[in-house]
Design a protein around this nucleic acid. Structure first.
Lengths: 118, 118
DNA sequence: TCCTTAGTTCAAAAGTTATTGAACAATTGG
DNA sequence: CCAATTGTTCAATAACTTTTGAACTAAGGA
């Protein structure tokens, strides 16, 4: 009952960039980064799309090696693979997240501000 | 006879990431970065695809704001918009180029090594 | 056991992107 | 002017991506 993830050395730059080049997925990553250390389940992201659609986007992120999904009961607890991404592409994730933080055109999760925890 | 380019403030993060999430375009950017300061014309990239196909990819890069194309006679002299990208997304281009430099799976231009000028 | 919750899978539809060749335009040099 | 060079545009096609709803699985609680 574990989901498939690429090893760190299998993470591919063009695939990661392509996966992040979608506003919904960028919003997911941005939100995960703002809640680093906290594992979130899929329903936290329902603002960004339908359940089916999120399942699709979260699978893309997982298969690209951007996120990790752990099965806990009926939940998938999702985290950013920050250490793996930093090891493979130093500075990339930070600059993407910083750039995304400045962008008012990107969708956001919840009504809640990204900086303040609920 | 000038080609359309976005202003610096119109450069969009998801569009830039999406555009860089293609091996051919990543190779173009990597090669431009290795020849920074030098303006290249399209035929320098013919290793990466047909003339038509390169015209397509170079247009994508230009429209995303990643490159600048200046019309000089029948040539388009192409440069990286490094200063604009650095201003808009600090650190992003550097980390992408550094990561791409490590990746043996990416296509390369010419037989020539990226580090040594011809 | 039955119901609910969480999420996946499947197939279809819609939309987008990449690649190709043929035709075209603009400039340069003879 | 004529031909060569450089690159674009167009239409077609192929391939991929995104989105949807309906059906499904698996775990947990009453």
């Amino acid at each position: 009952m574990t989901l498939p993830h690429p090893n760190t050395d299998q993470i591919s730059l063009p695939i990661v960039l392509g996966v992040l080049g979608d506003p919904t997925r960028l919003a997911i990553v941005r939100y995960l980064a703002s809640k680093e250390g906290v594992a979130l389940n899929c329903s936290q992201f329902l603002d960004l799309g339908s359940k089916t659609n999120l399942s699709y986007h979260l699978a893309k992120l997982r298969e690209a090696g951007v996120t990790r999904a752990e099965v806990v009961g009926t939940n998938r607890m999702i985290t950013l693979r920050r250490a793996d991404l930093d090891a493979r592409f130093p500075g990339l994730l930070d600059s993407v997240i910083a750039a995304a933080g400045d962008d008012p055109a990107l969708p956001a999760v919840g009504g809640h501000d990204l900086e303040m925890p609920a």
